[in-house]
Amino acid sequence: MWFTVLAGALGCYALKYVGAAIPESFLENPLVKRIVMLLPVSLLCALVAVQTFAADGSLTIDARVPAVGVASLVLWRKGSFILVVLSAAGTAGLLRHFGLAS
């Protein structure tokens, strides 16, 4: 088991390091720079979408969808970060508490 733990950790660290180890001159290429600027936007939005709609390898609509919807509204109305997060937690928590969504 230690082998699994350490090999997994080593690989994950290497992946984190490889991006930082690439020389900055590589980013001076305008094409590369544009792609690198856009990468986290696509990845993080994909992550948010999956965290909102995916469960066990399929798409589903549960308490997370209205919760993130309410939070988006708060965000759009320029609510603070804490308010955005709490509105999502509150919506999902309450819907589940009253058995209105899973």
Binding site: L44, C45, L47, V48, Q51, T52, A63, R64, A67, V68, A71, S72, L75, F81, V84, V85, L86, S87, A88, A89, G90, T91, A92, G93, L94, R96
Partner: peptide, 12 residues
Amino acid sequence: GLDAAIAAGLFA
């Protein structure tokens, strides 16, 4: 509701 909170936080 923390699963939704983390998604919303990242979105923000």
